[in-house]
């Protein structure tokens, strides 16, 4: 008997065993290559950052050239907390998420009108303004020298950060996993479906009673909070915050990460982060100064070949592994 429509709707959100495999192996790598833990935590953080961008780009349809704004705000929030005696990591994450969300919420209203170009400029402009702000407020942020003297406490009061990055990775991976689950829940909900509708055809979305502005504000705020948490994770695990967190490069990089892995697909950001970070690690070993060139080349080739084709390729590979259907 053919499955009912109700069943078919629910099936689309089913957890597949290839997903369990993915997360279990992400845990297992720590025990196989314990010396690479710091690199792995970088990947997890980058993956979370790319996931946050995917929420607005892949699901909201907003092209942003300034997503580093929220990463940077989160990093500075957590960094400043740790510097001023409030070194509890989870408290830092919470505050970073809150501050980034507030800024995301406030600025989201600027994105509601206008074309892709206007949105591009507004997001870029906000990131640049925050960069200038952090640069000028050197007494607070440390300016170009970076924030000095962070003291990050143990996670949950139990697990201190070690030199090899083992705690850092487990901490970052756990946060990534939990936020991933939340994002997965959201994109498969009716709210998530309505986002797809807004992205696909905002005119019609309004005509079936969806408040287009309301949905975009909501997802942009959420995405900002996610990016803020990624920034806070980065600050806490490296015990370092510099102006670099707000740099244009970071906004461009995260876009590349997401596009490599696949836009509009929750695993895309994470897979992109793995490929990007490993590539960066490898290239930086060969040509430390000029690795930017290769990043540029990858971008150009990706567009010429068509990044959708790569995404479809990866997805069908995953599907073959998972038995049937693409994951997430």
């Amino acid at each position: 008997m053919a499955p009912s429509a109700h069943q078919m709707m629910l099936d689309q959100a089913r957890w597949r065993w290839s997903e369990s495999l993915f997360w279990l192996s992400s845990l297992a790598v720590l025990f196989v290559f314990p010396s690479k833990a710091l690199l792995f935590s970088q990947i997890a953080i980058m993956g979370l950052f790319a996931l946050s961008l995917d929420l607005i780009l892949g699901y909201g349809g907003i092209v942003s050239l300034g997503h580093a704004a929220f990463f940077g705000v989160g990093a500075y929030a957590a960094g400043l907390m740790a510097k001023h005696g409030m070194g509890d990591p989870l408290l830092g994450l919470g505050v970073a998420a809150f501050v980034a969300a507030v800024i995301g919420w406030l600025t989201s209203f600027l994105l509601l009108r206008g074309s892709d170009l206007t949105r591009l400029m507004v997001t870029l402009g906000i990131a640049l303004m925050l960069f200038e702000l952090a640069n000028r407020m050197a007494p607070i942020t440390g300016g170009a020298d970076g924030l000095q003297g962070m003291m990050v406490g143990p996670v949950l009061g139990l697990f201190s950060f070690d030199l090899f990055g083992k705690t850092a990775y487990l901490y970052a991976l756990t946060v990534l996993f939990l936020l991933f689950l939340l994002a997965r829940k959201i994109v498969h909900s009716t709210f998530g479906l309505s986002l797809r509708a807004v992205k696909g055809n905002a005119l019609r979305a309004g005509a079936i009673g969806i408040s287009v502005s309301g949905r975009l504000v909501a997802i942009y705020t959420l995405s900002a909070a996610f990016a803020g948490i990624a920034g806070a994770l980065s600050a806490q695990t490296t015990q370092l915050v510099s102006l670099d967190v707000l740099d244009f490069h970071r906004s461009a990089d995260v876009m590349l990460v997401l596009v490599i892995g696949g836009v509009g697909w929750l695993y895309g950001g994470i897979i992109g982060a793995i490929m990007f970070t490993l590539m960066q690690d490898w290239l930086a070993g060969i040509t430390p100064q000029y690795w930017e060139f290769w990043i540029g080349l990858v971008l150009v080739c990706l567009v010429l070949v068509g990044h959708d084709r790569i995404k479809t390729g990866v997805q069908s590979m995953v599907a073959r592994l998972g038995g049937k259907g693409g994951a997430a």
């Binding site: 709707m9 959100a13 498969h188 009716t190 998530g192």
Partner: peptide, 12 residues
């Protein structure tokens, strides 16, 4: 008025 439901799977 269920469009903002972000918790349950669409079609629940």
């Amino acid at each position: 008025q269920q469009g903002r439901d972000w918790w349950r799977v669409a079609g629940s």
